[in-house]
Design a protein around this nucleic acid. Structure first.
Lengths: 227, 227
DNA sequence: TAGATTGTTAATCGATTAACAATC
DNA sequence: TAGATTGTTAATCGATTAACAATC
């Protein structure tokens, strides 16, 4: 949307050069803050102002954004709408990726019912499960399909992302199966890590439990009058 | 459990000195792999073997573990059971922290029904919600309590961690309210970031959406024959 | 033009890796 | 003892911050 040819070409050139993982990990955070600014009708912001808001240095913001091109203007700052558009483009928000959920248990249902996909331009298209009690039931407007239909479904539809919310015991074989069907992205919620990079499949392992443990660690360090 | 006084004292000394954030973030991963080794009756491992398993350098493993003390033995390697115990201790797994969930919606229910707390030595003790349709219902054996009873509950019970699964619109005020009741740890699932470090409250913001966006970014970089 | 703020280079800081002496 | 592997120091690498010239 609203993209001019010149900067779009420049963008592709730059994004092909590998950008540091540290920078990439920060992009979604910029995306969130820019959206919030836009929601509050703030149309212009300097790296200095944004740095106060986000609690990072202005230097880091300018450095980060410049990995992808000169999105600002000297003496003015950044046009929030334009910058938001660029970050969205970089993150692939306007690519309309299709996602399926494998495992329509509690977590799968929670994800299906949440706006998490929609807000990031990802379209949830189907849910699958092995449990006969769940198959055929309706979750957030989706009829849960049996796993037996997965192959056919993937053959007939474009599926970019599979969300894995199966028990961890079966997640590795499920992942390999899905990869064999040509799905190129896995979003894995099982605590078992998956690596299919050798097959050209990108994986994000979520590990909510690690986050809980880090919290416990910090609690344990932090004063902790109970002990 | 099974802790000898000398090494325990040494441990406290070391943990008080601040360990680098990069190391801390890796601890839960060691915890996971060590548990898995133990489950497979592997009682001894060298940094070299563990490095192959975890796809990190042996040097990093030895460096990381040494932040907390000499847990290995030259010429032998590491005793898996002992090391697992030590990491557990560092992460506070045996401290029996109590947690409550605020917001018994889809995600809150999913967490309550999962073994995520139990596996890390955290005890879920109650769920709260504002929705009259949810209050009084039973989720995974817990009767959902009305938010009005939160203050009294926290006064009468020890609550270490509050899990925030409320809509993001109310998460900041909820967080401040909970902090005012003396709860020292927040596990926040709303996409709005919370910082209450000035009040001595530790917070882990989960941001599942950021993970999804990073996946989309990688998909976009990775070949991506659709475009 | 003068003021402001970016883009970018150089300096600093922290984290990772390599190497090896200590030691089981 | 000889072999293996840790603990630890030193070297490298990458990421962050500071500084300032370019420029709107």
């Amino acid at each position: 949307m609203n993209q001019n040819d010149k900067s779009s070409a420049a963008l592709s050139d730059v994004t092909r050069d590998s950008v540091s993982p540290a920078v990439i990990k920060r992009l979604p955070r910029y995306f969130r803050y820019l959206r919030e600014l836009l929601r509050n009708d703030i149309l212009r912001i300097s790296s200095g102002e944004l740095s106060k808001l986000m609690h990072v240095t202005a230097s880091q913001i300018r450095q980060d954004l410049n990995c992808f091109g000169g999105f600002g203007q000297q003496g003015y700052g950044y046009n929030v709408k334009y910058l938001y558009g660029k970050i969205s483009e970089i993150l692939g928000v306007n690519r309309n990726y299709n996602a399926i959920i494998i495992g329509a248990g509690n977590l799968g249902s929670a994800l299906a019912s949440s706006p998490i996909f929609e807000k990031r331009g990802v379209k949830l298209v189907a849910l699958f499960d092995v449990n006969p009690n769940v198959i055929g039931s309706s979750i957030s407007g989706y009829t849960v399909l049996p796993m037996e239909e997965l192959d056919q479904y993937c053959a007939e539809h474009t599926v970019d992302i599979a969300v894995l919310t199966t028990p961890k015991e079966v997640v590795r074989e499920t992942a390999e199966h899905i990869a064999s069907l040509g799905v190129k992205g896995l979003w894995n919620f099982a605590s078992t890590e998956i690596d299919l990079s050798h097959q050209g499949v990108v994986v994000q392992n979520v590990h909510m439990g690690d986050s809980l443990m880090t919290l416990c660690y910090e609690l344990t360090q932090n004063g902790d009058t109970r002990f």
